[in-house]
């Protein structure tokens, strides 16, 4: 058993993959919890598609370079988020419909740009390659986590206020739009940081699935954030082990592991699970 657990991590590329996934698991899920609680789950979909044209343009300008593609993805993600918000305000329409329109256009644009480029593997960008994480990718992931965590700590109070009672927040001088924008910038950073390992399409998996699963384990906001991080870390380790022993791609294995843990929560979690509905517990006297 010990050999089963530790043998894979004797290899350098597996340790590198594990370190990258740990960084993603610490930075992303707390943001995912806020996305879920603020009913912005669609935004994560939008961003994962929205960063693609930026990554593609980064590849066009700077070649297959993680910093160039990462910077392009970050700018594209922010642009998409701002554009959708501005469009919905300008037209008076619902933001979700504008988001859907923007991300479909962004995805098509990204694929079109990449298809015109020779030597860029679209599959690699869309789905990533955890086991090919190099020093620069690792630095991007660790750097993003280093920025995201203290920034989220600073944003925590206004974000909670804005999420729970936006009128109170604004009436007491809070800048809701600025808080929202700062939060989105952190989400974009987290999504972009994961694209080399998990690809643009699946980097959101390690942000959202643990957050959704955490609702079945944590009661308070803090409890849900801790549960989400633990679930993401577990999914990373399980996914890498499954990938190594069953010879399946690591990215999908990690996201599938997170999915399995989410389904586990739905079935048998402490809160709002099927088990809790089926098996009635004795109620308290008072």
């Amino acid at each position: 058993m010990i050999q089963f657990l530790f043998e894979p991590f004797a290899l350098g590329f597996m340790r590198r993959a594990l370190a990258g996934c740990i960084a993603l698991s610490i930075a992303g899920p707390p943001l995912g919890v806020f996305l879920v609680l603020r009913r912005m789950s669609l935004m994560s979909d939008v961003l994962q598609h929205g960063i693609l044209p930026g990554i593609a343009l980064g590849a066009v300008v700077g070649g297959i370079s993680v910093p160039a593609m990462g910077a392009g993805g970050f700018l594209a993600g922010l642009t998409v988020a701002l554009l959708a918000g501005a469009l919905s305000r300008a037209t008076g329409g619902r933001e979700d419909s504008q988001l859907a329109g923007v991300y479909l256009v962004a995805l098509a644009l990204g694929v079109a740009i990449l298809s015109a480029q020779r030597g860029v593997d679209l599959t690699h960008l869309l789905f990533g390659s955890v086991l090919a994480v190099d020093d620069i990718s690792l630095l991007l992931m660790a750097g993003a986590a280093t920025v995201v965590l203290p920034s989220l700590a600073l944003l925590w109070r206004p974000l909670v206020l804005e999420s729970f009672d936006p009128d109170f927040h604004r009436a007491t001088g809070g800048r809701g739009a600025l808080v929202h924008l700062g939060f989105l910038a952190l989400v974009v950073l987290a999504v972009v940081s994961g694209f080399t390992a998990l690809g643009t399409l699946m980097s959101v998996g390690l942000i959202m699935l643990p957050a959704v699963a955490a609702r079945h384990w944590g009661e308070t906001l803090g409890g849900q954030v801790i549960a989400a991080v633990v679930i993401a870390l577990a999914a990373s380790v399980i996914g890498l082990l499954v990938s190594y022993h069953a010879d399946v791609p690591a990215g999908p294995a990690i996201v599938l592991s997170a999915g399995a843990l989410w389904i586990g929560g739905v079935l048998a979690g402490r809160r709002e699970s099927l088990l809790r509905r089926l098996v009635r517990q004795a109620h308290y006297a008072g």
Binding site: F164, D165, T172
Partner: peptide, 17 residues
């Protein structure tokens, strides 16, 4: 400074606080 007691429907009571 303004203190505000807003109408309850404007609050997100599902937020786990």
């Amino acid at each position: 400074r303004i203190g505000l007691l807003p109408q309850t429907p404007s609050l997100d009571k599902a937020f786990p606080i």
